[in-house]
Write a protein that binds this DNA or RNA. Structure first.
Ligand SMILES: [Mn+2]
Ligand SMILES: [Mn+2]
Ligand SMILES: [Mn+2]
Ligand SMILES: [Mn+2]
Lengths: 145, 145
DNA sequence: GTCAAGATATAGCTTAGGCTATAATTCGTG
DNA sequence: CACGAATTATAGCCTAAGCTATATCTTGAC
């Protein structure tokens, strides 16, 4: 049983800031997943084709096309019509950061007893909300075990 | 330095399933936050008024009204025009579950070295992606320290 | 009891992210 | 080297979630 400790109520403004932050994070989460995954495809196959992007994301092909358009708008990817998609320097850097964070989150989850498959499943959503500060705490914890 | 261990590439289908799961979770995350927060308001003030809901969520009042409409559609809340908002049994049960999970996530983060404020900030997004299985692992870890 | 202020609802707009159906392009095979 | 299959782009639709502006309802002060 969890003890019934009444929490000191949070100021409305502060709580609102937390929710705002969570909403901001969520708006870049999809971009992060696309960028990381496109990086994987390029590493594995030399290029990322729209059809493969769609398959790996579990979306329809036009949805992937639209996402790529957004990545291009944000300066994370480049592509020409009917050709493969590639990452810009910014995109590649982001992909690497996201990939590393993903691995750390999975490792942390497993370190506290979460089975690997579940860790992978939950990490796919959790990772985007892990701040730099929390990521550092995770790394310290993993190093100091 | 993180070691450069090449991961075994995940089957596209399995990875797609993870992304699908993350997107599903994301679609209920906002509902969870609204329900938990409305529960707080009712506990503190006896009722949840639309203006207070909007303030705490950091959204405009019509956005809160629309969210309440969705909660009603989903059977989590009831209200009559120009009156306060209340939770159904289902809504109250969900609020309690979400509140408990939130506390556990914050506790776990702090247990691995995340400062309280950062833990609260990150938990607001992380919590929604924590599966029952992961939640249990968190509880065991916290109990067995 | 009236009515002005405050709270809530409604109208109408935007963007992101899905979808299906179909048009346009590329490319391998014969 | 042509053409059919595969791939990609486009058109057009939907829902969720945000916003501002404005209409409508409630309520407390006089
Ligand atoms: Mn992810
Ligand atoms: Mn990931
Ligand atoms: Mn939350
Ligand atoms: Mn929460």
């Amino acid at each position: 049983m969890t003890e019934d400790i009444p929490q000191a109520p949070i100021p409305a403004r502060e709580q609102a800031d937390r929710f705002l932050r969570a909403r901001e994070v969520q708006s870049v989460a999809l971009l992060e997943d696309y960028v990381e995954m496109i990086g994987d495809l390029i590493a594995e196959m030399g290029e990322a084709r729209v059809a493969d992007i769609a398959e790996r994301m579990g979306v329809a092909q036009p949805t992937a096309t639209k996402a790529v358009a957004r990545l291009k708008r944000e300066g994370l990817a480049i592509s020409r019509p009917y050709r493969g998609v590639f990452l810009t320097d910014a995109g590649g850097t982001l992909a690497e950061k996201v990939r590393a964070r993903h691995r750390t989150v999975v490792a942390l989850l497993m370190a506290v007893g979460v089975p690997e498959e579940t860790a992978e499943l939950d990490a796919e959503g959790i990772e985007h909300h892990v701040s730099d500060q929390t990521l550092q705490a995770f790394e310290s914890f993993l190093a100091g075990r």
